[in-house]
Design a protein around this nucleic acid. Structure first.
Lengths: 157, 157
DNA sequence: TATTGTTATACTCTATAACTATA
DNA sequence: TATAGTTATAGAGTATAACAATA
């Protein structure tokens, strides 16, 4: 029963899903110790690195739909990690700022994630990791450019 | 706003999630043209390659919980792609067999997925793909071995 | 007592449509 | 009219507990 999926393992999508499904629960477990989820951590990290951006920009950076950002920023704000302040230039928008508590937490969680990342990639060299990043970013870009265009012509063959 | 997530892109989990989130909708779109979802296709492929296995074994191969397999096999059976037959040896279990229609569909869909996989990995060489597979399988194995054990000691540092 | 398949259920993630207030 | 944020909602995907039939 070992390798009953050997044919599927030729496909990048299957490999991606297997690796992601195995790794994400570990990331979730780590983040939940700090009261965070994946997207709330990513949001905090981006806000710390680039204070003052607004929710729409944050959604674009993380490739998340805007409605889903609302609750995430709600949680970060209620946890005292981030502040919403009405933007002076555009009073529709909120400027997102990290609090000192938010900055401090981001440092600790980032360190923990880096350590966990080393365990997840144990057995891979520094070159392997650079190569892996390149491969994953190319796949992401290819997928983004694949807008409906060439999805369709295969069901008729 | 480009590369506002450059720090996050150092982390394998973030890269994995970005690539997977971008690629999976394309895979879903392709499969839905054939009336399949990701796990129902994977199940069909495994049943075609290894006829006679039961639902629990299928769940193990695909790393899916058994309750979720039930509905998937239901759908495959209702679509006339797979048959459940009571196993002679163990009358609790079902032996899963592909129908001729199921075998034929699997061939077509697999071909389409391979073509789509080539587009998703456009720009990567054959060596790149071998290397990528190795990296993803190592990450999956590392994650699987990371059972709660070393998740915990970081929140106290 | 343990296991196979099943039911019911619940939680997370993600996506869309429609609203409000500002521009 | 267009955009920022919001609300409500719905659909996948995934996970657990508990049950019936069989081992």
């Amino acid at each position: 029963m070992d390798q009953f999926d050997s044919k599927l393992r030729q496909m990048p999508g299957y490999l991606l899903r297997r690796a992601t499904s195995a790794a994400m629960p570990k990331v979730n477990d780590l983040l939940s110790e700090f009261g965070l989820r994946r997207t709330s951590y990513s949001s905090l990290a981006v806000i710390v690195a680039h204070p003052g951006l607004n929710q729409g920009q944050l959604a674009d950076v993380l490739a998340v739909e805007r409605p889903n950002i609302v609750q995430i920023v709600d949680q970060l704000e209620q946890a005292g990690l981030v502040q919403r302040t009405k933007s002076a230039e555009d009073r529709r928008a909120y400027s997102l700022q990290p609090t000192p508590k938010g900055r401090a937490l981001e440092v600790r969680v980032t360190e923990a994630l880096i350590q966990q990342g080393l365990r997840l990639t144990q057995g891979l060299s520094a070159e392997d990791l650079i190569h892996l990043r390149r491969c994953l970013e190319i796949i992401e870009q290819n997928a983004d450019q694949m807008e409906a265009r060439d999805v369709c012509d295969l069901s008729s063959t």
